[in-house]
């Protein structure tokens, strides 16, 4: 489980090598993400985990709908709500669990925790907006190096409040950066509803910079997967940026237990929960088998992670030290 020596296989290659119908494969990935988050939240409630975490419950369809189109070597820059993106990218719940638990065997040795991870070509950081120009620079570097790789950066409706996002959109368009900006509009920036934090149109923000822009209102993983297939292909083919807005909903609290949203609103949105939505299209037996397999994996992953030691304080050294 802690191998790490095998060659990394990117999401698209893993997708193509996996078995089952599109719906079954997407469901397996979403169930992994959902169950991972639920287990995490339970561990917080039990006091096993401390600190904070941002679950993506309700937004799993975005993760799988976009990321399964990314090739080995393509880059993802994610944000504070990154677990689902990472799991869709790398399918390594044990390393993410260990990281969040602050274990030395975690993705970055317990240094980053929930919001600050790095694995292969996947990065995340916890400051809103700042990752967007960095991702743009990565795209420009890949273009300069002629690798043909593209970059996918995830932001949310709340992040659209950051000015640096627009600086990045401007430069990405000016310089033709091969980057996909995915805006997961989950309607709430922490405790603030979108109507109190955002004026105007989301797609028009991209269009104003000459960035091809699209939007989809959906929690249907198959629909989102189909929607982004052409978009990812276009970014790769044209080398131009695209802003893809997904209007979705966060079914869980912002971080751990800070949900002040109207109960009736959240309840109404449960009808659009992407997980049962997709499950309803699967054969019951297949769905149960997928779930059981995921449960077993997660059982092992969390149990392995809990067994890993915390990093030793003696390993701390000044990163600027050249000796």
């Amino acid at each position: 489980m802690d191998g790490g020596s095998s060659e990394f296989v990117g999401p698209r290659q893993r997708w193509l090598a996996s078995e089952g119908s599109t719906a079954e494969r997407l469901y397996g990935q979403m169930w992994l993400i959902r169950e991972f988050e639920e287990r995490l939240l339970s561990l917080f409630e039990e006091g096993v985990l401390t600190g904070t975490t941002h679950a993506c419950i309700g937004q799993e369809a975005d993760c799988v709908g976009v990321i399964n189109h990314l090739e080995t070597g393509d880059v993802i820059f994610s944000n504070h709500r990154c677990h689902g993106h990472f799991l869709a990218y790398a399918d390594r719940p044990e390393w993410l669990a260990a990281e969040i638990m602050g274990r030395g065997a975690g993705l970055v040795g317990g240094r980053g925790g929930s919001q600050h991870i790095c694995y292969e070509d996947f990065f995340s950081n916890g400051v809103q907006g700042g990752i967007v120009p960095v991702a743009t620079g990565i795209a420009m570097a890949e273009k300069a190096r002629g690798t043909g790789r593209i970059v996918c950066v995830f932001l949310g409706d709340g992040t659209l409040g950051q000015g640096v996002v627009y600086e990045a959109l401007n430069m990405a368009s000016l310089w033709s950066a091969p980057i996909l900006f995915v805006v997961e509009d989950n309607r709430w920036a922490q405790s603030t509803p979108v109507e109190k934090e955002l004026s105007g149109s989301m797609v028009a923000r991209g269009e104003a910079f000459g960035v091809a822009s699209s939007e989809i209102t959906s929690t249907d993983a198959e629909e989102i997967y189909g929607h982004f297939e052409g978009i990812v292909a276009a970014v790769r083919k044209t080398g131009r940026p695209h802003l893809g807005v997904i209007h979705t909903y966060r079914l869980c609290h912002h971080s751990k237990s800070d949900d002040m949203r109207p109960e009736e609103e959240v309840e109404a949105r449960r009808a659009l929960d992407p997980v049962p939505l997709l499950r309803s299209r699967l054969d019951e037996e297949r769905a149960s088998a997928i779930e059981a397999a995921v449960q077993k994996r997660l059982e092992e992953a969390f149990s392995w992670a809990l067994d890993q030691p915390h990093p030793a304080a003696e390993t701390l050294r000044d990163p600027l030290s050249t000796s």
């Binding site: 700042g130 620079g137 420009m140 600086e167 990045a168």
Partner: peptide
């Protein structure tokens, strides 16, 4: 040599991304 918009945060971020991927901005 990339002349930039008046976007200090943006282009320092872009350069950081370039540096992450092997360039020397």
């Amino acid at each position: 040599v990339w002349t930039t918009p008046i976007s200090e945060a943006g282009f320092v971020g872009v350069a950081t991304g370039m540096a992450l991927r092997g360039l020397r901005p």
